[in-house]
Amino acid sequence: MHSGQYQDKNDEQLAALAINDPHAFVPLVRRYEARLLAYIRRISGFSKEDAEDVLQEAFMDAYRHVASFDNNLKFSNWIYRITHNRTISTYRKKRHSLNDYSTDDEDLGFERILSSNEDIQLKAENTITKQKVKQILDQLPPRDKEVLILAYMEEKSYEEIGDILRAPMGTVATWIRRAKIKFAKLADKEKII
């Protein structure tokens, strides 16, 4: 069989088909490749090459365990969760050799983080650089950084973030609220707002 014939299927159908036919998994890889690559780089700061390696491993993990995909969950959340876990585990191993990464493709994401806080929004000016926002994100504890990226760059809902990070929705809401406060404080300290 060829992966082309599966183009009209939705993610969950493809995941079910992939148990018996690996070609059904190819459209899924195609659909998520770019955004997961960006996500890996956002939360880890990996170079493009390293991020691609991580993503490849994440897709292999997902394929090997595709039979354990719970159809009540969105495939998108499931693949984000696998990618997230794989990224964190790789990040812990090679934290010392991280490269800085370009933020050119993330204008919208950084703007969304800034506009998420009314106080910041009022003060935000066009001179705010993406690089500074990234610097603040890097100063935040990993959990705060992850939830802000998921909520404002990946535009995931609280429920989706809960599915990705395996946490109840209420807890996610608390994490995001705290992360926003910490972000605002750091932004104020850095005088970027």
Binding site: S3, P22, V29, R30
Partner: peptide
């Protein structure tokens, strides 16, 4: 080569391990 293409190549070459059975 994109990751999707690499994935497809592995399938065609028989390099892809089988998924854990249901």
């Amino acid at each position: 080569m994109s990751i999707a293409e690499q994935f497809e190549q592995k399938i065609n070459q028989g390099d892809l391990p089988k998924p854990v059975p249901k």
